[in-house]
Design a protein around this nucleic acid. Sequence first.
DNA 1: TTGTACGCGTTATCAC
DNA 2: GTGATAACGCGTACAA
Lengths: 329, 329
Amino acid sequence: MSTASRVLTGSSHPISAKTRAKVIAVAEQLGYSPSALARALVSRSSRLMGILVSDIVNPYFSVIARGVDDIASRAGYVTMLCNVDRRTTTEITRVQTMRDYRAAGVIFAGSGYVDDPQEPELAKAVRHAQEQGIHAVSLTARTIGCPVIAADPQAAAYDITDYLISLGHRRIAFIEGPEDMVATRQRRDGFLACMSNADLTEGAHLFPGGFDFEAGHAATMRLIARPPLPDAIIAANDEAAVGALNALRQAHINVPDEISVAGIDDLRVARFVGLTTVSLPLYEMGAMAARHIIDTPPEAATGAAETTTLSHRLIPRETTARRAARTSG
Amino acid sequence: MSTASRVLTGSSHPISAKTRAKVIAVAEQLGYSPSALARALVSRSSRLMGILVSDIVNPYFSVIARGVDDIASRAGYVTMLCNVDRRTTTEITRVQTMRDYRAAGVIFAGSGYVDDPQEPELAKAVRHAQEQGIHAVSLTARTIGCPVIAADPQAAAYDITDYLISLGHRRIAFIEGPEDMVATRQRRDGFLACMSNADLTEGAHLFPGGFDFEAGHAATMRLIARPPLPDAIIAANDEAAVGALNALRQAHINVPDEISVAGIDDLRVARFVGLTTVSLPLYEMGAMAARHIIDTPPEAATGAAETTTLSHRLIPRETTARRAARTSG
DNA sequence: TTGTACGCGTTATCAC
DNA sequence: GTGATAACGCGTACAA
């Protein structure tokens, strides 16, 4: 038995060529494959990796998940997918599940909430997991005591705002994300900071919105109903921006001649509709998180919670243009 | 120890109320949680469920995955996500992985290929898995020896074609899916069958395409370059249809006034652009497959490979209209 | 009603 | 260079 184990695991223990061949042959013939379960039980660590997303149907998260799985599967790991629907309590439950399976690590893809009363509880669950050698990585800035690998959403919002200003736009509407999300606040703050720096605070108009198409559409309808039309609209993410585009088209307002529109994320849909946006390294974030989990030994799971910031990139497309000389609305 | 086990697993074995309370209290205090690994090892079956998709970024598959995970997680199962990039060999590898983890079941979400030389090998892997009590379910018609839970893609294509004909369209272009995919053939066959039944075989025009935006765009460009323009375009799926819409807009061809466009799938993007399409029960397919795996005991994994066909639904939106009276192009 | 002992399938340790 | 044995953490048949 031990000999077979040694051959099959490629141990450095010396084995005669003859025995080795025999083991391999028999294993082959029997269709033998070692039990990942037993292996994990004895080694106290499995090759399972958890990815916690709000909703895998949301392309923002599916791109991240793809980045995780590509790296994971290449290294012989399996990705465990969990939809948590933005509920922190569900995240806590899932962290516990990861412990039950002695996963190699858990990746938190979703943003946290401002003043979330559950967050400390989650931080505790994360600490327990780490004590068992389970790595945790967050893909947004969160106070749950684990390393962060993320883009700088505030800077992304700042840059897209700056771009629109550079095109001559002065009155800019910002359609915000879901209330109380940290990500919402970050993106809004980036917008406001840039407007302020450009001395355009009076031209900054905030509209409550959301991260989905419908929210972007509805916010834009309200915006249209309250003239004058701004020079440009920035939506907190691409999907809301597409909703905005739709609302404008229905109102026969030409983009980008009459108004410029931009988003944040650079999902596939942005390419489809030619949306100007900021490309966030979502795939790379997932991939890096997976790499971190694979490459760092379990003993180091409780290491310092350092932050890695990846860079974003402005992607000018067809929904933005230099502000036309026109009578102010 | 056994007493604790009995309390925690909710066994029917009689336990004194006092002991029970004590066990629960201590477990609580210790933050005890049973090892899913050890449990699976001894019970010879884990609460893991595999879902094999071509690419989770493709919304077609992420909706299915969401259906699977909703049912799975509600029942205490964990979803293992595998991107197989349409490679049958990768599917085979992953089935083996599911065996290693003694998964409760595997769900094949992607279509097979016509005359795929690897398919028998996959069927063998599936049989081996089934012999270990691992369920397999396919979400498309495939010859891999497992139950099928799917819509009828041919009927879906037939119905959307029939709808366009009912709107007065006679010359209809069909943008096909990727070459050699079974799904491609099914959808095309549905289109051709309907055209034939309506005695419009001469009006049926096939264009090589693909399942993505770019393919739909490119096919439509070729179509535009070869007048006369057809009365309508049906793309093999929604994403290609959106690509077609884009190409038409760039060419300043009005939809639906000059040409109608329709897709198949009814993904979110179809709602965004107001695309007429056929709604396929993707979420429900995933959910039903998961339910099947959860509800059927492992012993029955080698049961008959029956086929469950779910119904689809025509969704008329704004990209189709009655054919305008006009001089034939 | 409670406790003991075995087996699930590995790997690591130790004798041979 | 090879083989026996313990241990991983659980559930369960059996004994008490």
